[in-house]
Nucleic acid binder design. Structure first.
Lengths: 335, 335
DNA sequence: CTGTTAGCGCCTTCAT
DNA sequence: ATGAAGGCGCTAACAG
């Protein structure tokens, strides 16, 4: 409410003197400083960060643009971001895109206008138009969770290809040969990489890829539900399903239950990113868990490094491994 | 990167003319407008929202201050906030307090400095110092999920007292008489209201309150774990436990399992806010679910109404009912 | 229909 | 050790 002028008047000094007290800069007689500090306290003065940012060309604010905060993977990632940002005095603006490039573009335009110092982006597409926009406006960006085609973009992500490979190898080891994968139809690297890992595991085992067993829909429960309904209509049915993410797996499970099928007796089910272990009364899904918190944290630290000019010119690609957790949802195929 | 001056120069007009084009205000010859628009496109100009906000005294940004985004209740609530805010062109800054009043205060000071137009606050305490701070700086606030003592604060929350009453009545109906409640030691209304509902249900059934069965710790899995360990040492043990929130219940479940006890055979377990139904392979916990999304959405709409001067002077208290969902974790007490 | 002046709140620069 | 002038990018109010 009150401005630096009010404080100056109250303390009987110039605004510059107040500014010096606030910023602890230059020389000030201790009596003067005391008077100013008293005036600040009396008025409950807080400096206007807008005005400071206008001068400094720094807002101490970054943006986190992700697809859906309701996915616990992104929730945990977001928490990693906020903790790392807060530790260095940065605030976080967050936006959901729901995988829509249009929404992504709209959000980013606003973020550029708001002069965020940098952007953490879970790109809605591998060739997100967001990247050139940010570059044109000199806003540093780090891609999270997903690669983009532009090789000059810093990226922090989990190892989707390797995780998918492990998961499918696990199924093959149990004796499965008709393994389906449910993935996203969007052009995102987590989708393509997971299918790539799936293919590698199959090919290594000498199993031919059946294109009908690769279903592309949404990274959502509805997507997993629809894809699974299609799969269950096949003859013979797959004996195992790899859900490309947690939501897909939840939808797949529901579709199987509604079809009267038991997991894993009739069909196994594995996935990426189940729920946090501590939430689960009866851990069930075999999964590869990615270090979501660390991804958010390390991406933030990388971004803040860039803002300070640290970290060198070359783009960095940090790939964090996942962890295979075998649980009850995967078993040998039915006889 | 480029400013209004650059556009003006490029188009051969004054900055005022550019400003008029941007804001669609006043009269402009259509040729002039076209020239300006072309210049804007050529330069990829985007107005600096900092400068505009400094003039307008409006940032089109609100803050969401909650305890922990990782709790799926708050995640869903946050999504409701973001959707409602985005629909009206507002961005959302978010902060986690982890129930710490100190962290809350630090965040709010920064938010005031950043000139957010309003704050959505899940107060860390019923007498949060945040409220007077915000009032002193003329920042509208809406309390979410929890009441504060100050009656002049708009509030949107679930019905904790009523939900707890239903839950405990359900247990009593099953035949339980030694029912424990695990709550938070923090001075927050969700804790006190849930205990109040618990007491009302007991007293209505003529069951005396045993103070040893009311455990105060954290709203966390660790809190629930610790409290439950204490309870299990009692003779006789409680036959049912009411976990004050989802995390507490997860911790309680773990403590029981580690003690070799079966839920619900040896002890029933009920809670507020289990996980979203679609995530659960095997829905297990009997729970009262609160409409988290609606709480976030309605709180945001209330706040934005206030910003526009709508809604009248009287404080509003919106209480949304929860829904009792009976599942497998509650059963009659052991014989 | 368009331009000039002034100021939002703050801080850098240069005096004193 | 302190103050005065000027400007960050933008727009309201007033000219013309």
């Amino acid at each position: 409410m009150s401005t630096i002028k009010d404080v100056a008047r109250q303390a009987g000094v110039s605004t510059m003197t107040v500014s010096r007290v606030i910023n602890n800069t230059g020389y000030i007689r201790s009596e003067t400083r005391a008077r100013v500090e008293q005036a600040i306290a009396e008025l409950g003065y807080l400096p206007n960060a807008l005005a400071r940012s206008l001068r400094f060309k720094q807002t101490k604010t970054i943006a986190l643009v992700l697809t859906d905060i309701k996915n616990p993977f992104f929730t945990t990632l977001a928490r990693g971001v906020e903790d790392a940002a807060g530790a260095q005095g940065f605030s976080v603006l967050f936006c959901n895109t729901d995988e829509s490039e249009a929404a992504e573009g709209a959000h980013l335009s606003i973020l550029v206008q708001k002069q965020v110092d940098g952007v953490l982006l879970v790109p809605a597409s591998s060739e997100s138009r967001a990247i050139p926009l940010l570059r044109a406006h000199g806003v540093p960006v780090v891609a999270l969770d997903r690669r983009v085609h532009d090789p000059s973009v810093d990226t922090v992500r989990g190892d989707s290809e390797g995780g998918a490979y492990e998961l499918v190898r696990h199924l093959i080891g149990l004796g499965h040969r008709r393994i389906a994968v449910l993935t996203s139809a969007h052009n995102v690297s987590t989708a393509t990489d997971r299918v790539a890992g799936y293919r590698r595991a199959l090919s290594e085992a000498g199993i031919a890829v059946d294109p009908r067993l690769i279903c592309s829909d949404d990274f959502s429960t509805e997507g997993g539900f629809r894809s699974t309904q299609q799969l269950l209509a096949l003859h013979p049915r797959p004996t195992a399903i790899f859900g490309g993410n947690n939501f897909i797996a939840f939808g797949a499970f529901r579709a199987m239950r509604e079809a009267g099928l038991q997991v894993p007796d009739d069909c196994s089910l594995v996935t990426f990113d189940d729920l946090p272990e501590s939430w689960l009364m009866l851990p069930f899904l075999t999964t590869v868990n990615q270090p979501a918190y660390a991804i958010g944290q390390q991406a933030t630290e990388l971004l803040l490094d860039r803002l300070e000019g640290r970290g060198g010119p070359a783009a960095r690609m940090i790939v964090l491994p996942g962890e295979l957790i075998v649980r009850r949802s995967s078993a040998p195929p039915p006889a």
